[in-house]
Design a protein around this nucleic acid. Structure first.
Lengths: 111, 111
DNA sequence: CATCGGTACAACCATACGGTTGTATGACGC
DNA sequence: GCGTCATACAACCGTATGGTTGTACCGATG
């Protein structure tokens, strides 16, 4: 089961446009941190921090290849977020069903 | 289409345990802000702020009923987040497919 | 071994965030 | 109109966050 901390980390990690773009880019993995950094209008260190945040949240992994560390997104991490949303959707559906039930099965018999 | 700001707001709104719980509670709507606040170990004002953040993010709506304002979650808002994740999943799948293709359709004919 | 490319990390700064208290607005019951 | 319940909002405070620069740590290559 997911801990609240896990949810906090995943959602706050995704709450930044640069990080969302890194996640997207790191799907076709092959780029190291420096290569990733070249796409954004900020310092290398800033991007390196973003990657670290994504890594702590379990959204990407880093693997050493030669002198670089290649960043690759971890689908399992994204699924953590999705599971919460699915859970909400299920609750929502349940609520709708209960309302429908009230309407189609009234207390008294109908004409 | 979703704007970056919309994504920022939705994900950062969901990156807080109290707010996630409010979203869950507000599905079975019926509670006003004060009633919601009674569930959490913090001031009314703090909860009111959380609700405001959720409202700006489009995750809940408030409707006046008598002297209260009843909070109800807005499923459409949650679907904004889900769409992004679905989009990621699709990209991921596409990447897997391309890799599979490389494996099952090698350059040269196989023995 | 010296160097250089790539990464990590610490220190610092401005601003945003989560919480507090206090005050103002709005709608109902008398 | 008056009190009061429910909500809104401003001011303030400590800490987290997103950015910067500078320095130290590998690992490949001359």
């Amino acid at each position: 089961m997911q801990t609240t901390l896990e949810f906090d980390q995943v959602f706050s990690a995704l709450a930044d446009a640069t990080r969302r773009d890194i996640v997207r880019r790191a799907m076709d993995a092959g780029e190291g941190v420096a290569e990733l950094a070249s796409h954004y209008p900020m310092s290398f260190a800033a991007v390196q921090k973003h990657v670290a945040i994504l890594e702590r949240a379990g959204l990407v992994t880093k693997r050493r290849i030669g002198r670089r560390k290649v960043v690759r997104t971890n689908m399992a991490g994204l699924l953590v977020a999705r599971r919460l949303l699915d859970q909400y959707e299920e609750l929502w559906r349940g609520r709708i069903d209960r309302m429908t039930e009230l309407v189609t099965e009234p207390k008294e018999s109908n004409p």
